[in-house]
């Protein structure tokens, strides 16, 4: 009996050793070993707020579709992607996008009517992370690498993300991208002010949290020529609330209960 217990322990020990060496090997073969840092909450690791930082109870965006055209959409996408070091990958399967435009029927698949107002047939509709008040991606993430800030912005800790892509399955808007390969080779003009990502992590729009922290509006809002209004949804005096009071707005799949913070004026 004693002998058997010992052999079982040996057996168990060998198994543990085997698993351990596997993770060691993973560590050695990857070029980035800054795995997890010691902090307990990723939320603490967000941007340092400058004195002139823009703050809100809950950030939101209103997109005025009446003021949109292809050129404005292109400019918004370019501004965002250049600023955030989003790679320009040829293979569509590996594409990374934070903000892009699509047709009405894709942005609002459940609201596609046979006799749609003509204007919407080919109108480009920008889509991005909705920074939901009730984000399914945050619920799904097993490491809190994606988390919600006090002001409603849903952020990512690229250093904590294990690349399980549970958040991508959870997102009902297809707003998240995964680095299927090293993105750094496909960044033409790197912005040294913002981090690049490594392969194997998920990323998405961050409502330009890094710009809000230094008193600037999001890059897409700046490039939108007034088509995008960004502000505090909880502040009745804010411009965005005035705009939403005076115009009829719709949100993407609001029936799912995620409570998106991006409104579309139609």
């Amino acid at each position: 009996m004693e002998n058997n217990r010992r052999s079982f322990l040996k057996f168990a020990g060998v198994s543990v050793l085997g698993l351990g060496s596997l993770s060691l090997l993973d560590g050695l073969t990857s070029d980035d070993v800054i795995a997890a840092s010691g902090q307990t909450s990723a939320a603490e690791a967000t941007y340092k707020q400058a004195a002139n930082a823009l703050t809100a109870q809950r950030w939101g965006m209103a997109i005025d579709t009446r003021k949109l055209n292809d050129r404005i959409c292109r400019n918004m996408e370019k501004a965002c992607h250049r600023l955030h070091n989003v790679p320009d990958l040829e293979n569509k399967k590996h594409e990374i996008k934070w903000i892009w435009d699509t047709e009405y029927k894709h942005a609002f698949p459940a609201k596609t009517d046979p006799f749609l107002a003509e204007r919407f047939e080919h109108l480009p509709i920008p889509v991005l992370c909705n920074h939901c008040a009730n984000p399914p991606c945050v619920q799904a993430c097993p490491t809190q690498a994606t988390f919600q800030r006090e002001d409603g912005i849903v952020l990512m800790d690229f250093h904590r993300c294990i690349g399980c892509r549970f958040c991508m399955a959870a997102c009902p808007y297809g707003s998240r991208s995964f680095n299927f390969r090293d993105p750094r080779e496909a960044i033409k003009n790197q912005n040294t002010e913002f981090p690049t990502r490594m392969k194997g992590v998920v990323e998405k729009c961050n409502f330009c949290a890094e710009r809000l922290a230094v008193g600037k509006q999001p890059a897409c809002v700046e490039a939108s020529k007034g088509a995008l209004i960004f502000g505090d949804l909880e502040d009745p005096q804010s411009e965005i609330r005035q705009v939403l009071k005076e115009n009829y707005a719709i949100r993407r799949k609001q029936n799912l209960g995620t409570n998106p913070s991006v409104y579309y004026l139609v």
Binding site: S23, V33, A35, T143, A145, C161, I162, G163, V202
Partner: peptide
């Protein structure tokens, strides 16, 4: 995507 971070 990042197996060495599994223990996170």
């Amino acid at each position: 995507g990042q197996p060495m971070r599994l223990l996170n």
